[in-house]
Structures are given as structure tokens and as C-alpha cells.
């Protein structure tokens, strides 16, 4: 081993580089995951360029054009128009912004909750662990969709929010991020707890504790950075589920509120036009499907590559 002749620090750096290369190789072997990463990158790019496409086509998504209802594909409207004469492609791209924004931010938000719950339960153990894990079990056991429907219907002014905030046009966006995150943290919490339990027994952590490091410092400096792999995998795997919940709620009229386009609420309008314009119903659903399956494959590939079950790696 060449690492043996290097200084310990350089050896450790080389080891890390080796590990990273090994993980990258394992990830690249999972072809569906690689393809999914490419698809997601394209989706994000397309969503980012939504305003540019809008300008290029010379339309405006808010522009209701009653002379151009339910048109077929044309040069001006590559995917045609919807039941109010709005350009379908541009609305799909803007809808993608919403779905990706909700999916990613709610996943990160729930990962934060899950990481805190998991690390506290794993590190302190005992009563606190019991309490937090019973809470986690309880949340996992709940029928999530009916509860999400109630939470989406809650009148925010009754929670003491001023009416100007509660009735703002984009409040539906923030509300859905918060309520889906409330149920999404359990997977991360369980994995982080498991990782914390095994890391707590490792020598470098015991050494840190013996040298008098505070629990806060041990968790932040020694445990959390080493538990990143399971957090990343669980977070990626949760994005798809969150996007599905968002689209269901929006479809039922309780999520993202029109005129803000989301793939879910575009399908509500499309349902009524099923006999006249079936393609209107195909596109938004296909976008949800492709996005969700890509996140699921990506998570699967990351799981194989990072293998959170073998933390020592």
C-alpha cells in the first residue's frame, strides 16, 4: 500500500478518495439511476428556463385566450392549449417548478426533523429514545392522506395568523411543504438513530467523549458527518412520495391553488375535458410519473452506492 509511506493525514485523504471513487463506480453500475439523474437534471433545467420558453413562444401563462381553447399542437403552442386557451407546455414547465420545489424543500425540511429526532434518540437512549421512537412508530402508523386533507383544509386565521398572510396567493405552497414534512421525517429518524447507535460505540467517538467533548459537540462534529450517507439516501427516496402527495392534494383542490399551475391541479381541469382533449390529461400525469420514478431510481442507486447498512465501509 502506498498509503503506508505517506503521512497519516495524506493516507486518510487518499483513503477517502479511494472510497469516493469506489462509490462513484458502484453508482455508475446502476444504469437506471444514472439515467434518472440525467432526466432529473434535464427537468430541473427545463423548469429553470420556463420564463425563457414563455418569452420565446410569445405567450403568458396567465393569459386566458378564449379564441384558442383546446388547440392541438402547433408552432405557437408545441403541446397545444388547455381549456382556457393557455399554452400547455409553458404551464407544464411552471408546474414542474412547483412540484420540484415542494418535493425537494419538504424532503430537506423533513430530513432536518428526522436527523434531530434520530440523533437525540440514538445518542441519549433510555427514556428519551423510548419516547421518540414510540412517536415515530405512531406517526408511521397513521392514515396519512385523510390527515393531510384535514391539515390542508385548516383555516389559518384560527391559528392566529393575520388574514393578510393566511389568504396570500402563495400560502398554499408553503402550507403543503410544511404539512407533508410533518409526516415525512420518520424514515430518516430511524436510519439516523441506527447510525448513531453504531457510531456511538466507535473508538473515535468514545475518545472524544473521554476527552470531555460536550454531547452537542460529539453529535455535531463526530456523529452527524458520518451519518450523512443514510440521510442522503432516505431524503432522496422521500422526494417521490412527497411529490405524489402534493399532486393528489392539488388534484383534490386542497393543494396548490389555481391560477398557480401544478401538475396535480392541471389534471383537475383536464378530467372534465377527457372526451374532448385526452392529451391534456396525459401530459401532467406523465410528468409526475417520470419525476417520481426518477427520484425513486436515483435513491435506489444511491443506496447501492453508499450502502448505509454497512456504515463502516
Amino acid at each position: 500500500m502506498s498509503a503506508a509511506v505517506l503521512s497519516p493525514a495524506a493516507g486518510a485523504a487518499a483513503g477517502r478518495r479511494d472510497m469516493r471513487r469506489r462509490r462513484l463506480r458502484r453508482f455508475l453500475r446502476h444504469r437506471l439511476a444514472v439515467a434518472s439523474a440525467v432526466v432529473l437534471a434535464l427537468l430541473i433545467l427545463a423548469a429553470a428556463f420556463a420564463p425563457a420558453v414563455e418569452r420565446l413562444l410569445g405567450t403568458d401563462i396567465r393569459n386566458v385566450d378564449l379564441t384558442a381553447l383546446l388547440q392541438g399542437p402547433s408552432l405557437a403552442h408545441p403541446l397545444g392549449t388547455d381549456e382556457l386557451g393557455r399554452d400547455l407546455l409553458v404551464r407544464l414547465l411552471y408546474g414542474g417548478r412547483i412540484s420540484l420545489l415542494v418535493g425537494l424543500s419538504a424532503a430537506v425540511f423533513s430530513a432536518l426533523i428526522g436527523a434531530v429526532v434520530g440523533i437525540l434518540a440514538g445518542y441519549f437512549g433510555g427514556r428519551l429514545d423510548d419516547l421518540l421512537m414510540r412517536l415515530t412508530d405512531g406517526v408511521i402508523a397513521l392514515p396519512i392522506l385523510p390527515l393531510l386533507i384535514v391539515l390542508a383544509a385548516v383555516d389559518l386565521t384560527k391559528l392566529g395568523l393575520p388574514a393578510s398572510v393566511a389568504n396570500a396567493s402563495d400560502i398554499s405552497l408553503y402550507r403543503i411543504i410544511v404539512i407533508t414534512a410533518l409526516f415525512g421525517w420518520t424514515g430518516v429518524a430511524r436510519l439516523v438513530r441506527g447510525a448513531t447507535l453504531s457510531l456511538k460505540e466507535r473508538e473515535f467517538v468514545r475518545a472524544a467523549i473521554a476527552m470531555g467533548a460536550s454531547p452537542w459537540r460529539v453529535m455535531r462534529v463526530h456523529i452527524l458527518p458520518n451519518a450523512i450517507s443514510p440521510i442522503v439516501v432516505a431524503t432522496t427516496l422521500s422526494v417521490g412520495g412527497i411529490i405524489l402527495f402534493e399532486s393528489v392534494l392539488s388534484f383534490l383542490g386542497l393543494g396548490i391553488q389555481p391560477p398557480i399551475p401544478s401538475w396535480g391541479n392541471m389534471l383537475t381541469g383536464a378530467q372534465e375535458q377527457m372526451t374532448n382533449a385526452p392529451l391534456l390529461m396525459i401530459w401532467p400525469g406523465l410528468m409526475i410519473f417520470v419525476t417520481v420514478i426518477a427520484f425513486n431510481f436515483l435513491g435506489d442507486g444511491l443506496q447501492d452506492a453508499l450502502d448505509p447498512r454497512a456504515l463502516g465501509d
Binding site: G240, L244, S247, V248, F251, L267, G285, I293
Partner: peptide, 12 residues
């Protein structure tokens, strides 16, 4: 099956 929106499947 796990990635398709259930209501979309129903609509189709």
C-alpha cells in the same frame, strides 16, 4: 406502480 399518481391511473 409505486411512482404513478393513483388518481392519474384511475383517469386513464
Amino acid at each position: 406502480g409505486r411512482s404513478a399518481p393513483p388518481f392519474w391511473l384511475a383517469l386513464i
